[in-house]
């Protein structure tokens, strides 16, 4: 605000007045639902999750093995050359511990979330997922982890077919 301006507009609504229903409001709930088409690469990725495998794309020009898979390389701007599988193991690139739910309310059990660089993918190629079977205070950067899959009969072709990633012990694969 410039010191030349003496008054500034806006009428604040007190939270207490809102809660007490003293503020006239028009309420509305959108009803739209969506069906996102997964496309050629991600459809196959989801199908392969049912088989307990993680699909990646290969670009021979830049040499990258990309996960999540895609139909085109966004760097070379050409169709990818091939698809391959990467391992369901990797290491923690970064992580966070969430104490809040989607509506910003508090949860009892925190969720550990991480970017996991998968073995077999190009360096730095990671996916977002959860970490389990470990106290959040024990999680470390660079920690080796492995996917814990739902039983095959419960898989539905969703990223949640992997329940979470758990820490690997020294020497474990």
């Amino acid at each position: 605000m410039s010191e030349k301006i003496k008054e500034y507009p806006g009428h604040r609504i007190k939270t207490a007045d809102l809660r007490a229903g003293l503020v006239p409001l028009i309420r509305y709930k959108p009803e739209a639902k969506f069906a996102f088409s997964a496309g050629a690469a991600m459809s196959r990725f989801l199908e392969e999750l049912k088989n307990g495998r993680i699909l990646a794309s290969v670009c021979k020009k830049c040499g990258r093995i990309m996960v999540p898979p895609r139909t085109f390389c966004e760097i070379c701007f050409k169709p990818v050359d091939d698809y391959t599988y990467v391992k369901d193991t990797g290491k923690i690139n970064t992580y966070s511990v969430s104490f809040i739910a989607a509506d910003a309310s508090r949860v009892k059990e925190p969720t550990i979330v991480a970017v996991i660089e998968l073995d077999g993918a190009s360096p730095g190629m990671g996916i977002l997922h959860k970490i389990g079977e470990i106290d959040w205070k024990e999680v470390k950067f660079g920690m080796r982890v492995k996917a814990v899959w739902k039983p095959p009969e419960q898989r539905e072709g969703a990223i949640t077919d992997i329940k979470y990633f758990k820490p690997l012990k020294e020497g474990e694969e």
């Binding site: 969506f34 996102f36 997964a38 991600m42 989801l46 999540p68 690139n93 970064t94 992580y95 966070s96 511990v97 969430s98 809040i100 739910a101 989607a102 910003a104 969720t111 979330v113 991480a114 970017v115 996916i127 977002l128 997922h129 959860k130 950067f141 969703a158 990223i159 949640t160």
Partner: peptide, 24 residues
Amino acid sequence: PIMARPLGVTLIWIFALEMHRYMH
């Protein structure tokens, strides 16, 4: 909608992940 939303992602998650990496 395919890779992130089914996990229950929130906006703060992704910034927390970035902040943590920066700190690390």
